[in-house]
Design a protein around this nucleic acid. Structure first.
Lengths: 340, 340
DNA sequence: TCAAATTGGTATAACGATGTATCAGATGTC
DNA sequence: GACATCTGATACATCGTTATACCAATTTGA
């Protein structure tokens, strides 16, 4: 098997110098039509593709983008990835996804390796409890970076996210307006990231109507954990009639949990999720939720990074998109109201 | 803001030559303890990380691995990615995921960009209808490659997959043994990949017992599509009492579809899935399925690639793991048997 | 018709690391 | 004390591109 073809091979096959071949390959300089054709033919024949490392090293441009995320399995994130890839790929970038699984140590190793290979830019959902050194690492290596979803106050990075607090407040008000007076908040891994903002919104909404006390219950962001957490929450506080969930995965788990103990979501207990993942609409019963279009969000995110790469000296900016309340069948007035 | 630190900077801060600094950084050569310490201190202080491009170009070793997959959103695949990353990251590699979304054109662009950036190896679930040129591209550039799940007969690549035909035959026999005589096969995108092998297993099982006719119904591999396809299938063939599904996503969709029209999965119609994704166990009712541990499968896959990279001249090999039948609540004897 | 401008191509120095050859000085051996 | 050996560091060529400076041949202009 032949060695991997290089520019030198192409040049010698075409009978020109490497310099000429290089100019033809990237459409620069002034080369006559027939030499150009000879070079292109040689390249085609050898299946030549330029070595991006060498090119990037010399020219300083790099079209390799990383998307470092905390959780690749989440279907909302999967849709975001689609949006990001679509935009960046049409702009000529290659997107590679790194899954930190929300582990800051794993994240550190991944980002170090990422920097070593000198990629062109980073989209980043920081893992829970990301230490400052990791931020400084990115800064020190001048990596064009846009954070996503989880905003790092302490760092000067561009940011794209969701109006979490405002949306959660809206969801909470909606439940209270239906007549609920014991509204719990369920889900979220840790004292980190979007959960903080969503809980702030939840608290703010409750504070605005003095007759409901906040009640917050933690749970990892997946269905299994949501199911278990709902059971535990209900055991501890059987009087709860409504639950604001940190995400749809938890909400669907909670829905399954309620059904397991003979309660009907949307009648005995109201549930509201966040994200509007594909499962939300086909769940039984269909889940009420705060919807953000993850595909468009991904495009927005990618666009922000491209702008940063194109104009490295522009001031950093923060973009926050609003969520829309989607009412399906897990939200209804509490039972005592329905009896009236 | 300072420029990105390079070896030269480290060397000058430490008061040594670049050559010395290089040797210290990679623990080669013979360097005295105190110079070593000086260099390391300088590197630490500057947050120096070597430029992997330059290193790889010169030394020829590259610890960047790509995982090109057809569908990142599928939770089975997400678990595979975890297994792959865990193994490769402890071996010092960086894993980047590329999502072709089963589009051969997108895949071609991604793999071209991947080759350009000269990564060290590729794990690959070929997109549906992958043209031969894509294979030849990888061959021409001598990319160490292991295919996953979808076996390419025509190419000499290592392969890791599942005993699809055998497992599906086992599932089909199980349903027939329960007494079912109208057993459909549901799901699969196209005339491509694992679907072919699974259907072959289904057909073989039915052929071994002459009293059941094959009935095959296509559907994309997601819940929404599975739901719709189940409705259409039932409308066309209301007498069906059992369905072998191409995957759990379709099976769960089918389950939801049946419930939507008032049928009870596991009583009126038996369903059996494939993959044992997390949702399968907590679905209502819990789904019977063919289980393969995706995490371990991912590790196996990664190990195969490492072996290929380490020993480029060893003969190519194919690994196929067997699936285990998990009986939950969507499989039971058909109703007429239950009445007896 | 001779200088000036244009065309089409090449030689060569980077980019940031690595690895080998080399070398000066310290140590050891008999 | 002469010669071999070892130690610790350095110079330099190299990896595969790109960008610039340059040059010879051709065309243009007055």
């Amino acid at each position: 098997m032949a060695e991997r073809p290089k520019l030198e091979t192409v040049a010698s096959v075409a009978g020109v110098s490497v310099a000429t071949a290089s100019q033809v390959m990237r459409g620069a300089g002034r080369i006559s039509a027939k030499t150009r054709e000879r070079v292109l033919a040689a390249a085609r024949q050898l299946k030549y593709l330029p070595d991006g490392r060498a090119a990037a090293m010399r020219s300083g441009v790099n079209r390799d983008i990383g998307f470092a995320i905390h959780e690749i399995a989440n279907p909302f994130n999967a849709e975001v990835i689609s949006g990001v890839s679509d935009l960046l790929e049409t702009e000529g970038y290659l997107v590679a996804v790194l899954d930190s699984r929300d582990n800051p140590e794993r994240q550190r190793k991944q980002l170090e390796a990422f920097i070593r290979s000198s990629r062109g830019g980073l989209l980043w959902v920081p893992a829970a409890h990301t230490p400052s050194e990791t931020l400084e690492l990115l800064k020190a290596h001048q990596m064009p970076t846009v954070t996503f979803l989880r905003h790092l106050q302490r760092a000067q990075f561009d940011h794209v996210g969701i109006e979490d607090a405002e949306a959660t407040a809206r969801a909470t008000h909606y439940l209270a307006d239906l007549g609920h007076r014991t509204i719990a908040y369920l889900g979220g891994n840790a004292t980190f990231g979007v959960r903080l903002e969503r809980i702030a919104g939840y608290r703010r909404a409750l504070a605005e109507r003095s007759d409901v006390e906040p009640l917050i219950w933690e749970s990892p962001d997946n269905k299994r954990a949501g199911l278990d957490a709902m059971l535990a929450l209900h055991r501890a506080h059987p009087d709860i009639t409504a639950v604001v969930c940190n995400g749809d995965m938890v909400a669907i788990g909670a829905s399954l949990g309620l059904q397991k103990i003979g309660l009907q979501p949307g009648r005995d207990v109201s549930l509201i999720g966040f994200d509007d993942i594909p499962d939300a609409g086909i769940a039984i019963p269909p889940l009420s939720t705060m919807a953000v279009d993850p595909y468009q969000l991904g495009r927005r995110l990618a666009r922000t990074l491209v702008d940063r790469i194109t104009e490295p000296d522009s001031p950093t900016a923060t973009v926050r998109v609003t969520a829309e309340l989607i009412i399906r069948e897990t939200t209804a007035p509490p039972v005592q109201f329905q009896l009236n």
